[in-house]
Design a protein around this nucleic acid. Structure first.
Length: 85
DNA sequence: CAGATGACGATCA
DNA sequence: CTGATCGCCATCT
């Protein structure tokens, strides 16, 4: 039995290249449909290099903030992957 | 255990 | 549409 945090990390790691997932979607798959806030909190405190946290965006379409762990910014990375175009 | 925090989301003005 | 506010959840101190 994985914990919410582990689930979120596992899900985000499973996001295919060139695609994006909203915090609400991740939270929903993690087991809590209303834990979008918690998901962000988890990501912020758990910045693993093996987790493409830049593929996680807000539900309204905004990329949201980024600490620059995997690159300069989400937009740049998503642009390279083709998630934006 | 209780209080405070935050990479969100929806609603109101 | 834009800006501000409340409600939500899990984690950290």
């Amino acid at each position: 039995m994985k914990k919410f945090t582990e689930k979120v990390i596992d899900i985000v790691t499973n996001i295919p290249k060139g695609k994006t997932m909203t915090y609400a979607e991740v939270a929903n798959k993690a087991g809590s449909a209303q834990a979008a806030r918690a998901v962000g909190s988890i990501m912020a405190k758990n910045q693993d290099r093996n987790v493409p946290c830049h593929r996680v965006i807000r539900s309204d379409g905004s990329l949201g903030p980024y600490n620059g762990l995997r690159g300069p910014s989400k937009e740049a990375l998503l642009r390279e992957e083709g998630a934006i175009g």
